[in-house]
Design a protein around this nucleic acid. Structure first.
Lengths: 172, 172
DNA sequence: TGGTTAGTGTCAGCATGTTGTCATTTGCAC
DNA sequence: GTGCAAATGACAACATGCTGACACTAACCA
């Protein structure tokens, strides 16, 4: 096995090794089933790659993927979000989000502000520093998004997004 | 916020809360860019949901997502895989895979067998118990795959898979 | 009003994954 | 054959995420 991946980077296939869903020792099923399982496996890989992309992209900003996800969620919400609210948006446990936001408040990126609708559950907002960071995030994220979509037809993006949303709804 | 998610489950939105990529305080960009960022966020959520699905599906088998990913990768490889090989297939670091396989060997699911091509790097194979587990895995996975695709046109699955693969190649 | 149910904060334990580091082995070019 | 770069194994530190548990608060209904 002579591959050229750096020793400590996630080794993200795509080189000589590629997995196809072969049918071995088990009866063949519908091609759609194979298609779907193949898609699921590919989604796992794409997820990892996207996180790696984001981390590389935001390393200079001192962000990690957990952090820019939170910043993005807050920045995109018009109404204001609580910790469990962010968790719902990101599809994670509230405990996981709580831990991240606690550290980010300590680091001065976020603020807990009073929530008129709930005495205990504070609203999480961007501090001035957090807003600046978000703007910097946008500055690297936008060119990245544009660059990666310029050769992809809008219709394909729409079809994919629709299917992904459909699956999300299904598993929700 | 009156939601009905169990207290300790990943709170996977989709209910009243939905994030749309609004443009606030920043110039509007191409709709494609918004589409793409929306897709990325959705993929994060779908990834979490798929893992949760898989975990729920395989809980009775005593598997976790890290484990059925490994079992699946080994079962689908015709040539035999080393630890770094599995890592490449799954798009993860070899260290992470090594830890999982070590435990799975201890648990009797996997075997390290001699690798004629490499003195130090053993081939990871399924033990008898591992093969049984894989068959059980297939028994729950296949109906799941069929159930979740019966109302989705094959062409959409193909378009999505193609796009996902394209992105994988791009980030690889 | 009082009670029940759901949502939230908090702490702890554990599983997973990345990165860094270093020694050792392989493979390849010379 | 030698030497070097890449691959691998091994260990450690750290970030992230899930689950369980328990107390407290909010919301809702009879």
């Amino acid at each position: 096995m002579a591959l050229s991946a750096p020793a400590n980077k996630p080794l993200c296939g795509g080189d000589k090794i590629s997995v196809r869903l072969e049918q071995r020792e088990l009866p063949v099923h519908s091609p759609k089933r194979v298609l779907f399982l193949d898609l699921v496996l590919s989604l796992f890989r794409l997820n990892g790659l996207l996180i790696a992309e984001g981390d590389a992209m935001t390393k200079q900003l001192g962000l990690t993927h957990a952090r820019w996800k939170v910043i993005g969620a807050i920045a995109l919400s018009s109404a204001g979000l609580t910790v469990p609210g962010i968790a719902r948006v990101l599809g994670q446990s509230r405990q996981a989000v709580q831990r991240i936001t606690d550290v980010m408040v300590e680091d001065g990126l976020l603020l807990y502000t009073e929530n008129p609708k709930h005495k205990r559950s504070a609203l999480v907002t961007l501090s001035e520093e957090g807003k600046e960071t978000y703007n910097l995030l946008r500055e690297v994220q936008d060119p990245w998004a544009i660059e990666n979509t310029e050769d992809i037809p809008t219709e394909e993006l729409e079809t994919t997004l629709r299917l992904v949303r459909r699956l999300i709804k299904k598993f929700n």
